[in-house]
Design a binder for these strands. Structure first.
Lengths: 212, 212
DNA sequence: GGTAAATCTCGACCGTGGTCGATTTTAGAA
DNA sequence: TTCTAAAATCGACCACGGTCGAGATTTACC
């Protein structure tokens, strides 16, 4: 029997994850101790550390599940023919609702995903890449519909909108805007990105005519 | 003498801050214990907590000093008549150089400043507002030079560029781009923001003519 | 089955951030 | 100066995240 060990490990790992989902949801990440987590999973404290190197790593695995779930769910909710900005709003407001649902969890997740430590690069990169693969098709279609310029790398387009999303979430975490205002603020930023911050030729002519 | 107590408190507070600057710079934030900090400041461990509520709060005060210093220094380095994008690059690359200089410090600072906990709202808001006041004049001048649309709230313009800055820093922390690439990536994002992601009328005509 | 090596499990242990109440210092009235 | 209330100082103490080596379990070979 070479498989007994493998089988047990898989079982233990999922026991830890199940306990994590339950306890993190019940009392939050910080209020859940490793000891409690281990007991809930039916193992000793030290054993946790042969499955995850740090408490944060457990949180990452937890986030990975949550994000992959919500991402794939959200993509089915977008109408591929509606204007890009509407699709973006559905995607990003969907992700935001996950965050708004549990502020503390969301903050930790954003802190870790946006500014990850070196040891988490691989994991965050994986999650990011899966997400990028999903939204790329969305941006490509928008390009085909002439809603987006074709001379920009899709990565930069995705990055641009993601940056604005982060900005909106940051403004919310800073208490600068209320929960209900996040949607309208984000939409405004997205529209700005599409239209450009520099004045059009017509705008310029208009400004100049006024200056005379 | 009503002032003895006040005077002592001020002295102790600055002793803590001086110790913090020294020790954080020497060994980093995480490797410096409160006990060490207290000893270096010539006080007992418990006393620290009548000046700062948490270790993070000390870090915030430290960041505040660093940021205010670099911000005011950077503003003197910008030529108010050069194109907006050049001024933005000087400002944001200056701030980034502070971060790149000490990656761990920078990560904590960004994590805390972009996604602050409720108890730090007041402090982060203060720092942000001081920064905004400085850059607003820069954006206003750009509007007057017809480099920026005049129908957008300056707060949204500042937010837009700040979001893109965060995005560039995030890509760096995720290992997606190298230190030398941050500048060019950021410039590209800024230019995109100015030009707009949607195709111009001319672009559209060009795309459509090709499709025939 | 027997046995030795490899692997996994465990909780006592360490250093840390943060708390608390006993002790010391200061402010101000008598 | 003396006395008392208020405020500041302190380090023992607690709970936690993480380490480590002793002991238990599994594997692979006979």
């Amino acid at each position: 029997m070479q498989g007994i060990r493998e089988q047990k490990k898989r079982k233990t790992r999922s026991a830890i994850m199940e306990a994590a989902v339950r306890l993190f949801s019940e009392r939050g990440f910080e209020k859940t101790s490793i000891e409690q987590l281990a007991r809930a999973a039916g193992i000793g404290k030290g054993t946790i550390y042969s499955y995850f190197q740090t408490k944060t790593e457990i949180f990452h695995a937890f986030c990975e599940d949550e994000l992959d779930f919500i991402h794939s769910e959200l993509l089915t909710k977008t109408n591929p023919d509606s204007p890009l900005i509407e699709q973006l709003m559905i995607l990003y407001m969907g992700e935001f609702s996950l965050i708004a649902e549990n502020k503390e969890f969301g903050r930790l997740m954003m802190q870790q995903m946006v500014f990850p430590v070196e040891t988490e690069h691989a994991k965050t990169r994986e999650i990011d890449d899966r997400w990028l693969a999903l939204v790329f098709s969305l941006y490509r279609r928008a390009q085909e519909r002439n809603e987006l310029r074709r001379d920009i790398d899709l990565l930069y387009i995705a990055g641009h909108f993601y940056g604005l999303y982060i900005m909106a979430v940051s403004a919310w975490y800073s208490g600068r805007i209320q929960t209900e205002e996040v949607g309208s603020g984000m939409r405004l930023l997205f529209q700005q990105a599409l239209d450009g911050l520099a004045p059009s030729v017509a705008d310029k002519a208009h400004y100049e005519s006024k200056e005379l």
